[in-house]
Nucleic acid binder design. Structure first.
Lengths: 215, 215
DNA sequence: TCTGGAATACCACTTTATGGGTAGAACGGA
DNA sequence: TCCGTTCTACCCATAAAGTGGTATTCCAGA
């Protein structure tokens, strides 16, 4: 949450693949790689140290595998979004990852440009899936992606009202008038809901809310 | 475009109805009624004088009717959004209004609270329709609502790229880095696209873009 | 009754964003 | 070649947003 860059942690047991991902990330100035890990234990430790905004996590790893790492990350840091980056297009794997709180599931055989685009999208809070998976899981996901709505549920009712104002493009001042409170109070609510949603600005909150169908 | 309030012009030949709408608008501090007109000619004149952001326009009026007034408003002021406010739920009327560039079509028998909500939504650039009409016209509208995409077409390609960045929740600085230009340049593009889209802030632009499916 | 979350408000401060203007370089069409 | 558009960059000013505190009130649960 320090600067405005999206801080990324790469977790994969193939050094060469990590290097490729790292180079891909360097193509986008809004993304910054803050670490690499070859196994789950290291990943969790680095996540605690560097507090990344986004973790790119391989599913197949020696020792603690991707899913276990995902769960461990979820326990230690509820801030970071986690995207599974793997070769398996098995529906079971995808569903398991999403059920355990993954914010995305990308296949390693994607075009690098597409992958970068998805990573960007994920940084803004969108649930990202490889095209190949999207259609496959469209219906199943609809029943299973209550991760974001869980984030929404974390908000207090007042924060949801403020978020609604943001999603309508209102300024803090106008939200304050509508809710009949001071602008400073609205700022507090904005601050808190941004933290709870793991977002960096009201613009991201607006995008997120609209994508959630909040209106 | 002066202050941040949405400036509204009410056009209806029934004084009592105008008063009702005015009182409704007063319930929302982000809306400000800047004038009332009982006929089309007066409406156009007042629109030129007060440059409203939103015009609530009755379809049935003596003399210049609602559609003619709509077209006249479109000629004189491409900034204001125009919402038809009428008793007719005829599909022909709705389609004609939308074809002529109306940004919304609300029926006078709506619940006042709903109407206010729709008016707010319209202020952020959304195409609003009474619930009763939405389903009726869902398919037809899809083919006929290229008013917003016309606004999108007014943007230069660079402005669209910047808008894309906004729709991903990026700051000007990050958009600048991604496009490899200075932050000041991005600010110029933001300023211009806000003007072209008739919006007041990047947050509104983000909401608009996401609703347009821009990604 | 104590405790913690929620909502409210205020302060000070830094960073972003917005609005106005000017202006040069590049490009394409008349 | 001249003209209009676009993209670029810079200046200044103000407004809005975001961050970090502290503190009071209220209310529900332990």
């Amino acid at each position: 949450m320090n600067d405005e860059l999206t801080r990324v942690l790469i977790v994969d047991d193939h050094p060469l693949f990590r290097r490729g991902v790292r180079q891909l990330l360097e193509m986008d100035p809004s993304l910054k790689c803050v670490g690499e890990a070859a196994d789950g234990e290291t990943a969790v430790r680095l996540a605690c140290e560097h507090e990344p905004d986004l973790v790119l996590l391989d599913l197949q790893m020696e020792g603690m595998d991707g899913l276990a790492t995902l769960r461990a990350l979820r326990e230690h840091d509820r801030h970071a979004r986690v995207i599974m980056l793997t070769v398996s297009d098995s529906e079971d794997d995808v569903m398991a990852a999403l059920r355990d709180g993954a914010d995305g599931y990308l296949l390693k055989d994607m075009e690098p440009e597409d992958m970068l685009e998805r990573i960007r999208e994920a940084a803004t809070g969108k649930l990202v899936l490889s095209d190949r998976l999207t259609r496959l899981l469209a219906t199943a996901i609809t029943g299973g992606r209550d991760h974001d709505s869980a984030r929404l549920a974390e908000l207090t009712s007042r924060e949801r009202e403020v978020l609604g104002g943001i999603a309508q493009g209102l300024s803090n001042k106008l939200i304050a008038r509508r809710l009949d409170v001071s602008e400073g109070t609205v700022k507090v609510h904005v601050k808190n809901l941004l933290r709870k949603l793991g977002l960096k600005s009201r613009v991201q909150a607006a995008v997120w809310a609209v994508n959630q169908g909040l209106r």
